[in-house]
């Protein structure tokens, strides 16, 4: 039963990711991207990372892709790309794809490599304990504990990064407006 879910979410993620790349219409690409993120959220659910699955749907499939769709709408680019990729580009990118994929699959299917990867899912805990506070659990409490103890500095830096991003975006948008006005004056 679990395997069927695994294959379903894997197929959903991979096929829609391929369609993102292949679709010539940008809006279709963005919508397939949302589908791919939803499949990825399903895989997160299968790995018992419930909080990250929700975060994936809210932040990626929600906020990020809506931002993409807004930009596509604002820029009003031509619906489909006119120029097809040249055969050199196609050949080079296919070669890159095959090299990456074959290399990775070789590592995973090499005889003897199966011993390197644990095949058994460890028992999942629902609450962190005092003895092992950083062990994998399904509760958000583990996230809170990790963020406020071991990863305190990265957490604060992430907050600072968001502030920098906000200021940067405002600056970029304002400066381009300013230069537009200068162009009009000249």
């Amino acid at each position: 039963m679990v395997e069927y879910f695994y294959y379903f979410f894997a197929a959903l993620t991979l096929i829609s990711a391929l369609l993102v790349v292949v679709c010539r219409n940008t809006v279709n690409s963005a919508l397939f991207m949302i589908l791919s993120f939803l499949g990825m959220a399903g895989l997160f659910l299968m790995l018992d990372a419930f909080f990250l699955a929700i975060l994936q749907v809210l932040v990626y499939a929600g906020a990020v892709m809506v931002l993409f769709l807004f930009v596509i709408m604002l820029l009003d680019v031509e619906a489909t790309e006119k120029s097809r990729p040249t055969w050199v580009t196609l050949l080079a990118s296919l070669l890159g794809f095959v090299a990456l994929a074959m290399g990775a699959l070789y590592v995973f299917y090499e005889p003897g490599s199966a011993a390197l990867f644990s095949q058994q899912l460890p028992e999942v805990q629902t609450m962190p304990t005092d003895a092992a506070p950083m062990a994998f659990t399904t509760s958000v409490r583990s996230f809170g504990y990790g963020l406020f103890s071991k990863y305190m500095l990265p957490f604060q830096l992430a907050g600072f990064l968001l502030l920098v991003a906000v200021i940067g975006i405002i600056l970029i948008s304002k400066r381009s407006l300013h230069s537009d006005n200068n162009n009009k004056k000249q």
Binding site: Y6, A10, L14, V21, V71, S83, S93, G96, F97
Partner: peptide, 30 residues
Amino acid sequence: MLGLQGYLIISTLLFAIGFFGVLLRRNTLV
């Protein structure tokens, strides 16, 4: 039986697809 390998294979295939897209496409948004 699917184990850690199964997820890693999806992960690498997805990475390869993304790489393929970066090399193939001309549209900055895609």
